[in-house]
């Protein structure tokens, strides 16, 4: 719930570590306040039959807020500020080159199933980022998926998500 905002904070190239630190501390504080608010609504006090549902989370929210404020305080007023660059452009590019395909992959899994999406994902990743020949990549993708198929469906009998495409449906899996 908080990571989308975090990655926005990273995208500015050359942002210093203590800025990110402060943003994360603020998010922790916000989460703490959210938890306090949520558990207050649930009843964080003493009900007729004992502590209410929000009794324990309320204090967790308090600790969360305190630690958020504490980290924020240390970041802004601390003696040794960490002004190093959190991620430079090159690093961010490398990180996103894994993260974004991974998100597309998960989206694809939702529609065409784990097996088909995985094979395509591995093959494309190898071709585009690894500069492998398409034939090698397709073989690797299919090989890995076949191995997983046997491991999960056949040996350990754990069915995986097939989605709308079910190329091996005729086998009964």
């Amino acid at each position: 719930m908080e990571s989308s905002e975090q990655s926005v904070a990273e995208q500015r190239v050359g942002v210093s570590t203590n800025t990110v630190e402060a943003v994360v501390a603020l998010l922790v504080l916000a989460m703490g306040i959210g938890v306090i608010w949520g558990s207050w609504n649930l009843g964080s006090g003493w009900t007729t039959d004992g502590p209410g549902a929000g009794y324990f989370p309320f204090y967790i929210g308090v600790i969360l807020s305190i630690s958020g404020v504490g980290t924020l305080f240390q970041t802004i007023f601390g003696k040794n500020k960490n002004t190093d660059v959190f991620v430079d452009g090159e690093q961010l590019k490398r990180v996103l080159s894994v993260l974004i395909p991974a998100m597309v992959y998960v989206l694809a899994v939702q529609f065409i199933g784990l097996y088909v999406a995985s094979a395509i994902y591995i093959a494309l990743f190898m071709v585009i980022l690894g500069k492998f020949s398409p034939i090698k990549s397709v073989i690797a993708g299919l090989g890995v998926v076949t191995l997983f198929f046997f491991m999960f469906e056949v040996w350990f009998k754990v069915p995986l998500f097939k989605g709308s495409l079910d190329p091996l449906g005729f086998l009964g899996y």
């Binding site: 894994v98 395909p101 991974a102 992959y105 998960v106 899994v109 784990l114 995985s118 994902y121 591995i122 990743f125 190898m126 980022l129 690894g130 500069k131 492998f132 690797a140 890995v144 997983f148 999960f152 995986l160 998500f161």
Partner: peptide, 16 residues
């Protein structure tokens, strides 16, 4: 570049 996607796939299967 082979290991990374395979590990992502393994993690996704594990999570699912």
């Amino acid at each position: 570049s082979i290991i990374a996607p395979v590990i992502v796939v393994i993690c996704a299967i594990g999570a699912y």
